[in-house]
Design a protein around this nucleic acid. Sequence first.
DNA 1: CCAAAAGTGTTGTTTTTACACCCATGA
DNA 2: TCATGGGTGTAAAAACAACACTTTTGG
Lengths: 258, 258
Amino acid sequence: MMERKVDLRQWLSGADNEFLPHISLDCVVFGFHDGALKILLLKMQNLDQLALPGGFMMREETLEEAAIRTLEERTGLENIFLQQFHVFSDPARNDSATRLEDLKKLGMHPAKLEWFAQRFISVGFYALVEFSRVRPKPDVLSESCDWYSLEERGKLVLDHDQILDTALATLRMQLNHQPVGYNLLPRKFTMPELQKLYETILDKKLDRRNFQRKMLSYGILNVLDEKRTGGAYKAPYLYSFHLRNYQKALRQGLEAGA
Amino acid sequence: MMERKVDLRQWLSGADNEFLPHISLDCVVFGFHDGALKILLLKMQNLDQLALPGGFMMREETLEEAAIRTLEERTGLENIFLQQFHVFSDPARNDSATRLEDLKKLGMHPAKLEWFAQRFISVGFYALVEFSRVRPKPDVLSESCDWYSLEERGKLVLDHDQILDTALATLRMQLNHQPVGYNLLPRKFTMPELQKLYETILDKKLDRRNFQRKMLSYGILNVLDEKRTGGAYKAPYLYSFHLRNYQKALRQGLEAGA
DNA sequence: CCAAAAGTGTTGTTTTTACACCCATGA
DNA sequence: TCATGGGTGTAAAAACAACACTTTTGG
């Protein structure tokens, strides 16, 4: 996968392409920082609204490969594990009145405009990434590629608000069945940090002790001999994920792993 | 929705159409009969393998509408609630060597052959239907439309085995979170019948008393005053679903309903 | 020595599981 | 009257929820 990359500028100016019509994908990338859940959004040049990083599928790749490629092209994030969660197929989802105007502002070739005016279905993907390990870089079409908290994001283009909401709902549901954190935390982390992550995603407080017991019972954590020194107050232990067990739990669900 | 129907024979013979390219959908329809889970499969004319009822999306409908329409066109089943569960997008999924040969046997127009030779992604839908309330009718392309048990089905066309397996896995997962049975059982049914349904889907035995307690605790059942007479042995009570609560549980999950 | 965060263990409650007895019915 | 399936309750086990005290650290 990822044999080819797409020169977006050239493509927009009218160059032919290998994209399949009618099918797009959008990526909801969750990051965690400062105790808040953030999402990665693009600000397209000359446009007001923000957008999820999305793109189109090429003839010789799977949707999953297309999502990985697209995310890299549009945000610079490499090799992110993305999970499909829903197909959005309302015919009205991308025929907003302002849309063609917006695309013109991007300097799009008229032939491409027509292509874009088609009706698209979009497959939603979501990913969890470690905030600090990643340096988002906007593509040539975008002014910026940055993290936004859920509250401050404003209205997104098209139906991207709905896609985002559905992704979040899916993430919350899966939190009880799949291990979460490997992609959202530094390699070494403390239990309170992990707990904060859960509390942020679920938007509710959890009991410290019960949380710790439950996490340890899954058998997906290594207790390290170090502690996080330097911070104020008592130094917490550091943990890392037990990769083998973590991935087994990803495949089989958390219950099976005990 | 369902404003238009598609004349499949005319379409295959070369008539233009309103289908979007590159996107198809396949329906996994589960029925329950004789204590076994069955699936609805089509036997296409002159072909050996069986296939899931599937089709294509038109320009002015959602995928969900397309799934409902397709299922009706191909099997005669009307107004079935279908749930999307996964997108299958391996580029190799429909370029099997024998595929074009098969399509020729169906009397397909050469122009259509080319269209079919394209690469398609397919959105999988599944549905649960009450076996006895439904009278499958094959479409003009198919010799038969019938119920098969999971074991006796043989190898299906293309990647339909994988689609079926994924649907079953999804159904099993959702069994703990969503109410099941309204579409699979007669309007009045006994607790042992409902239990048998669960046991069949999960492929394991459940405890009679615990099952009953749990089901009743969800508050989605009405106990009727009648019993199922005529059968051998002690007459069991009849139940029906409490529609309001059932649908609330469908939307919000079973946990919220207690 | 105080405030704030982190470590740890216990207890009561709820949920789940396992299990046994009686009843109705047709053969 | 007996074999079979259906109705019901209870007790043990497990999971979960609530909760308090001690330790470390920087100020």
